[in-house]
Amino acid sequence: MSDIRNNWTLPEIKDIYDMPMLELVYRASSLHRKYNDTAEVQVCTLLSIKTGGCSEDCAYCPQAARYNTGVDVQALMKKEDVLSYAQKAKDAGSTRFCMGAAWREVRDNRDFDRVLDMVKGVNELGMEVCCTLGMLTEYQAQRLADAGLYAYNHNLDTSKEHYSEIITTRTFNDRLETLDNVRKAGVTVCCGGIIGLGETHEDRIKMLHTLATMPEHPESVPINALVPIAGTPLGNNTKVDIWDMVRMIATARILMPKTMVRLSAGRNDMSVAEQAFCFMAGANSIFAGDKLLTTANPGFDADNAMFELLGLKPRKAFKEEKQYLSEMIEA
């Protein structure tokens, strides 16, 4: 049976997820080695280009206008400031630059035109450019693609069954519709979730099932650990255990062997040894830089030291496309 499958069943995924930890990591690591360069990690930088004041009620998010979290509302950044930040990220080793705006959905207005201009600018720097702007229509996704967008992030967050416990201002199907619009535009998909939202292990398995049974696996799957923020409904949730992160990463790697599995939010609370175990389990992407939108993240210097210690190297931008062109030329 092929390792690359889109017909996983829930019982199959549960059997993988429930494996003894060391056996699970061994199996995930073996597949990771088969399909990827295990010394290579995609380094991404995420910038909040429009912060706070969001009309959504995502129970984990400090940018929701209805919660008092101390996050100041900031208007859409200027293009030159965004490009300056992107250049600094590139100089520090990032090859993918993601711009996030605290919007419920994209609107066809001057702000969107400005974002399209930013996408063009970052693309011209030679970086893979990603956006996370909320819900998109097919037309808006195509406009982003035409501007040079490489990836669009739109996380499922949790299972369909648990979704309404976390967000009521949109539906799980709204999420899937945006992802479908992104695919139609030929933009790569970045889609994962968050653990620590009060979900069950079954919810985690169901979320992975949704991702792994898409017609095409997401090119990037971020696995986030909730960072509880005072003032949000989940502000008192307990910290996610590192082994829960390892289990999620390893299961995702087995289900989607070629996908970039990103060790995302929550990394700031992990030791180098704990992060190393996540890389061994199949993680091959991180966010670098001292902020993830509004929450703390390890700085570039700390990550560079970790990479040197573990023998890791940043993945080059547009690697898949360059390999394809090289193979075409050789043929």
Rank of each mutant, 00 (worst) to 15 (best):
K316T: 13
L226Q: 07
G299M: 00
M248E: 13
A64T: 02
I242G: 01
L24V: 03
D244M: 02
A212Q: 04
D108Y: 06
V119I: 14
L226R: 07
L310Y: 06
R315W: 04
G134D: 05
K322Y: 03
Y26L: 04
S84P: 01
T188C: 10
K14Q: 10
S29C: 04
E274V: 06
G266Q: 02
N68E: 15
R204G: 05
M306D: 11
E330Q: 13
L22C: 10
A102T: 08
D146C: 04
K239Y: 06
F318A: 04
I205P: 03
A28P: 02
N224L: 09
T137V: 02
A265D: 03
G299Y: 04
Y163D: 12
L83R: 13
K14E: 09
T95D: 06
N6V: 12
T158S: 13
Q323W: 13
F307T: 11
F287M: 14
I16T: 02
A317H: 00
M248N: 15
A281K: 07
V246N: 02
S48F: 00
N268I: 09
P298V: 06
D301P: 05
V246Q: 06
I4Q: 10
I16E: 01
Q74I: 10
I13W: 01
S2F: 10
F279H: 12
T238I: 06
D91Q: 03
V82E: 11
I254Q: 09
Q323T: 14
F172P: 04
V106L: 06
V261T: 15
T38E: 05
S159Q: 07
V73M: 04
S2K: 15
A250Q: 01
E274S: 04
V115Y: 00
I254G: 07
S30G: 05
T251Q: 10
I205M: 14
N297F: 00
M21E: 12
G193Q: 01
M270E: 11
T9L: 10
Q323M: 14
A92Q: 11
M77Y: 05
N36L: 11
K34L: 13
T200N: 01
A147H: 05
M127T: 00
G186T: 00
T238P: 07
G193A: 01
G121V: 07
D15M: 05
E40R: 07
P233M: 15
R66G: 04
E327V: 11
M118Q: 08
Y152A: 09
D290Y: 08
A276S: 09
M280I: 01
M270D: 10
A225N: 09
T51P: 07
D157V: 05
E327R: 15
Q63H: 11
V71N: 02
G192L: 07
E274W: 03
D57L: 07
F172S: 12
L208V: 06
A331R: 13
I229Q: 13
K239Q: 14
S220C: 10
M270N: 01
A212R: 02
N7P: 08
T69Q: 13
T69N: 12
L310E: 01
A302H: 08
L176G: 11
D157N: 13
R175P: 10
T69K: 12
L76N: 14
H209M: 03
L133C: 05
N224M: 08
G193F: 07
A305K: 12
E219R: 12
A283M: 12
